[in-house]
């Protein structure tokens, strides 16, 4: 069993309150399902759209991240899965795809003892 991070990128904000309500319900159902099957380590957090980037030896500070809207990381979660393909399969249930988002699946790098 390994751990994976889901980075949620670039979904579109719903246009109407009804759609918002539907999204909450879908996300709740998704997390509930992951949690009940023992796959959810941490629901994680949403991230603010703005932040700072500290860069280089001079540690200069810029506004960032400077990605395109579709590449913004809007939040993350941590799950447990048998392997990367299993983690990818689990990710397919995420409601973010319906609103134009994507999920980046990254294994946590751990040293096997």
């Amino acid at each position: 069993m390994s751990q994976f991070v889901y980075f949620y990128r670039g979904w579109e904000a719903p246009a109407s309150p009804t759609e918002m309500q539907q999204q909450i319900q879908k996300w709740s159902a998704w997390f509930k399902q992951l949690s009940e099957s023992g796959r959810l380590t941490d629901r994680g957090y949403p991230l603010e759209r703005t932040g700072k980037v500290v860069v280089g030896k001079t540690k200069s500070i810029t506004d960032g991240p400077y990605a395109e809207a579709k590449d913004f990381v809007g939040g993350y979660s941590i799950v447990e899965a048998d392997d990367i393909m299993h983690a990818v399969e689990l990710a397919k249930g995420c409601p973010t795809f319906e609103s134009g988002g994507s999920v980046e699946v990254r294994p946590l790098l751990v040293m096997k003892s």
Binding site: I24, S28, P46
Partner: peptide, 17 residues
């Protein structure tokens, strides 16, 4: 209002209602 509701949506999605 749209913005406030969107933020509520984002936070609640992850942290629960």
């Amino acid at each position: 209002v749209q913005d406030v509701l969107c933020r509520a949506l984002e936070v609640w999605k992850f942290r629960g209602v």
